[in-house]
Design a protein around this nucleic acid. Structure first.
Lengths: 205, 205
DNA sequence: GTGCAATTGCACAACGATGTGCAATGTACG
DNA sequence: CGTACATTGCACATCGTTGTGCAATTGCAC
């Protein structure tokens, strides 16, 4: 039985993976890319795509699920057992960036696509966790920002998207982008630049 | 001849304006809103919309042109004859926000729509002006950010979009949003919160 | 090579959207 | 009232996309 699953299922699985991968890139270029465009880009016939995913929606859904799950996992993992809000932000940012860099393309898609709502919704818990942490920091005086926690969390999320896009467009080196992002988020929250830089440097060695 | 243009051209012009206005809102809700949806929302028949705008593209183009033009004008006007980079950022932000608040909906659209590229392109000069100012500030030490000027300008632009969206979603009061935005941008650039708050307060009275 | 599953290459129906044509209707203005 | 123009309510052709059906073909494994 177990051996039976190998057949030319290997080819099928490889195709499935490749379709998902290519769809990511293709949907970035054009959020309304048709199934045909995606299929062609994956060197496959449209009919084959429907063989793996029953509908366009199902395909995109699979895509989004994977990315969101990975990002959320990284985010929570990055700040488990961290008391200091500033350090939490820094760690979480660095952790998310790690994964996000792989999904950078999709996250860029998140800004434009019609799927935005779906992604936003699924990302809501993460954003809420951020907001809580920011609220603590604001109470403690670690953060000083005129923005309310929820709005600040929102801005942080968008800043990450913006920075990923900046990398995509070559305005920022992919190498240092992670640390830069962390510093930028902390700075926006109201942590002095010098302090933020120091903290991030300490964490990324 | 001049008197001849009044006829029921008044109704026509009113319709035209209303269509544009409603299209703004409708395209926000769904960037792929059909001409029929827009027409219905404007209490008009689809055919009438085509009477004013030869194609969907033309309508959107008109929309974008108006908004971008207004924003660009406000931006340059807001910082003419201002030497201090920080003050320039503050003034420009406040000025842009003034207009943008009216176009808030469309700017939110700018993030998602297929039209993104077009808007980005047309907004490029403004972004470039921002970058120059930021570069000056970074040289002078008024700003301290790990990000290069271009990337910082990019982030600033996206932050404005994010803040407008935040207002749209009720996370931020429309009242104080303008000042908050200005402070947030300055803070992100590396200006200490207290200083930024003070500067913005001084400018908005 | 034989078998099995995936893939291919068509064909097809169903939709929804765009843009146009035209006659009928409505409405302001002199 | 009559003229002029905007709007309406259809009808229509066209196009692109989605999702499905089915026979032919390809490729992997044993």
């Amino acid at each position: 039985m177990a051996a039976m699953t190998t057949g030319n299922a290997s080819r099928a699985d490889a195709n499935r993976r490749r379709i998902l991968e290519v769809a990511l890139a293709e949907l970035l270029r054009d959020p309304d890319a048709s199934m045909d465009q995606i299929a062609r880009a994956a060197s496959v016939v449209r009919r084959t795509v429907y063989g793996h995913f029953p509908s366009r929606e199902a395909l995109i859904s699979t895509l989004v699920d994977g990315a969101v799950e990975a990002v959320a996992a990284a985010h929570t993992a990055g700040r488990e057992g961290v008391a200091d809000p500033a350090e939490a932000v820094a760690r979480a940012t660095l952790a998310v960036w790690e994964v996000a860099d792989r999904y950078r393309i999709l996250v860029a898609l998140a800004q434009r696509s019609v799927t935005v709502q779906g992604i936003r919704d699924r990302l809501a818990p993460v954003r809420e966790a951020c907001a809580e942490n920011l609220a603590r920091g604001l109470e403690q005086g670690v953060f000083t920002s005129p923005l309310p926690p929820r709005a600040l969390a929102y801005v942080h999320e968008q800043m990450l998207f913006a920075l990923m896009d900046a990398v995509n467009e070559g305005l920022l080196g992919a190498r240092e982008a992670g640390r830069s992002a962390a510093v930028a988020l902390l700075t926006t929250a109201g942590v002095p630049v010098s302090q933020a830089t120091e903290l991030v440097a300490k964490l990324s060695d």
